[in-house]
Design a protein around this nucleic acid. Structure first.
Ligand code: FES
Ligand code: FES
Lengths: 144, 144
DNA sequence: TATAAATAAGATAAATTTATCCGAAATAAA
DNA sequence: TTTATTTCGGATAAATTTATCTTATTTATA
């Protein structure tokens, strides 16, 4: 469904958010350990999230990654997915036609659209805050 | 969502089915032209569909690919997807945890499950026949 | 039985995604 | 200002997916 890069990006953002609740910055090392991902690759993905203004990085000693508290509440899963995987998952044709077009539909268009729109709604309505709170309270998990 | 191989496989099966309605066998060359896919790669995927008993191949002169008419009606999209991409799309965790487990859920599990199950239902309920008939009647398209 | 036409199968190559490595740049504190 | 710590950025490598090519094998027909 999502690329590995996107999976790591989502999990990293959730982990950073759950630590930012307590004003703790976290390093790529700690992140990759907690979400069980390759460290250097994860660092690359973090850079993309920084560029897209989803997480904030602080360089130098005592630095690390954090997310402003108000941003945790307003950031939606959709923004993270878009930053890493783009909008192909929403807009692209399920069978790979050049464009998904109502007027020139592929055989699965109608049925696909329903599911794709639902996925888009879900990603657009799910905030980082909800997900991070579930991690903090031990309801959900980031690895294994 | 699906791999390229799977996209080609679905479109190939639909094209073969739509020709089998008229007892016409088709070649990998014709298939790849009609679904706009690389010929040799498509041929490989056809072999997988043959092994999984989804399409029938007839070797030698006047051979080609076909699907028995009764099978066109009973074959579901799910079988094609399973033959090529496996069941990861239904059963795997959306965030890449080793297993999707209700008792050890990832942060998006609940919301993901809804969509995943709907996708599974859709693929399980959509027959090759419906899709092939839409191609024949010009309601939907396999390329561009 | 010989020939031509067709799929099957295996080896190889190209492209993309995933992953690693290393030096540069920035920052806080001593 | 020096040093230690940390992210940033570019180059490289490994793995996977996608794609091609070449040779076998099968089969209908002449
Ligand atoms: S045209 Fe294929 S999903 Fe819309
Ligand atoms: S555990 Fe991640 S989708 Fe179920």
């Amino acid at each position: 469904m999502f690329s590995k890069a996107c999976e790591y990006g989502i999990k990293a953002a959730i982990f950073i958010a759950s630590n930012s609740f307590e004003n703790r910055r976290v390093s790529p090392k700690e992140i990759s350990e907690e979400i069980d991902s390759p460290q250097a690759f994860t660092a690359k993905i973090l850079q993309a999230l920084v560029k897209n203004n989803i997480v904030k990085s602080v360089r130098g000693a005592y630095g690390g990654f954090e997310i402003d508290k108000d941003k945790i509440a307003t950031t939606k899963l959709a923004q993270i997915v878009y930053a890493i995987d783009g909008d192909g998952i929403y807009k692209g044709c399920g069978l790979g036609l050049h464009t998904c077009d109502e007027n020139h539909p592929c055989p699965v268009h109608d049925k696909f659209k329903v599911i794709r729109d639902e996925l888009q709604d879900m990603l657009g309505n799910t905030s980082l805050e909800q997900l991070a709170l579930d991690i903090k309270s031990g309801v959900s998990f980031l690895k294994v």
